[in-house]
């Protein structure tokens, strides 16, 4: 996704200095590697805090709607547009619905779409990139040419066309819209990783003793790209979340009664003069999620790649 320019640095990763090479070639030390990484992550207090906030946010969105005393869809005009108060910590919206509950529900939608689209992006990327990188030769060349072509697709315009094709925007349409023109980068990263690893001694040895190619891919190559992929999830997430918010904002969000944070913010903008909390709550939720994702990604990068370390 191109929303975050920092991510774009990963585009030529196959040619320029690839950050994770050094850690890559040691499948024997797998368990140690992860333990080390975890220890390093825990040393990074910002990442730990971000991770904790993130977990809390997920738990809140997952659990609160079951616990909440309020029906999130119950309309009561007598309660409308209340600011934050003791009964309604986030206030109420223009239907008098409890925003604390609705924000949790909106979080489910936003995060669901966010992680859903991210996973789709990575899955396509892994499939495309690993085949291209592993098989190599003419196929690789052709697939990379094709990828170059797809790079010309403008991401948001295509997302808009996709939502129009489906007309009625649902959870899955949104996932498709957000991933259709944004998996190219992840394919490139995976291909770069796979090519580097292919030259690794273990892989060569495995090939030499006649292991099947998909075994080599599954046993040696993919586990080694896992770290990079986990980082990629959190790097990709902010862009997807913002993309969803933009589409919702220009009126292409998913259908009611579900409402994502983006849609809640869009509705809030209409009343921001009288009830500013209705735009503020979901916007701050979006911002918090993105901040957490950024810090978690930073922490993971440091943890999984000991070469780059914070001063």
């Amino acid at each position: 996704m191109v929303v975050d320019p920092t991510q774009a640095t990963r585009r030529p990763v196959d040619t320029a200095a690839a950050p994770a090479h050094e850690t890559a070639g040691a499948p024997i030390a797998q368990s140690n590697l992860w333990k080390d990484a975890w220890r390093r992550y825990l040393r990074n207090r910002a990442a730990v805090l971000a991770g904790s906030v993130f977990v809390l946010l997920v738990l809140y969105c997952a659990i609160w709607p079951f616990v909440s005393p309020y029906d999130p869809n119950e309309v009561d005009f007598a309660l409308k547009n209340q600011g934050p108060n003791l009964e309604h910590p986030f206030g109420t919206d223009n239907f008098g619905r409890d925003l604390f509950t609705r924000t949790a529900l909106g979080g489910r939608v936003s995060m669901g779409i966010g992680f859903g689209a991210t996973l789709v992006i990575l899955l396509i990327g892994v499939a495309y990139g690993s085949i291209s990188g592993f098989v190599g030769g003419k196929l690789d060349n052709g697939m990379m040419r094709f990828l170059d072509t797809l790079y010309g697709l403008p991401y948001l315009p295509f997302a808009i066309i996709v939502t129009a094709i489906f007309g009625n925007v649902t959870f899955w349409t949104m996932v498709v819209a957000l991933s259709i023109a944004s998996w190219f980068t992840s394919a490139r990263i995976v291909r770069g990783q796979v090519i580097t690893l292919k030259e690794n001694d273990y892989v060569r040895a495995a090939k030499a003793v006649g292991a099947r190619w998909f075994r080599v891919l599954a046993r040696h190559l993919l586990p080694n790209t896992l770290g990079v992929l986990i980082i990629a999830i959190f790097l990709e997430l902010p862009g997807v979340i913002l993309g969803e918010a933009i589409l919702s904002f220009i009126g292409l969000g998913i259908s009611p009664p579900d409402a994502s944070w983006g849609q809640m913010a869009q509705e809030g903008r209409l009343v921001y003069r009288v009830a500013p909390h209705i735009i503020a709550v979901p916007s701050i939720a979006i911002a918090t999620l993105i901040l957490c994702a950024n810090f978690i990604a930073d922490g993971l990068r440091d943890a999984l790649d000991p070469r780059t370390r914070e001063t």
Partner: peptide
């Protein structure tokens, strides 16, 4: 500046093609 240059292309592309919200 090398990573900035790399990021600059997609960013510029995105800014020109993705200003729907601001234009509205």
């Amino acid at each position: 500046l090398i990573p900035v240059v790399t990021a600059a292309g997609p960013t510029l592309g995105f800014l020109i093609t993705g200003s729907f919200v601001i234009e509205q």
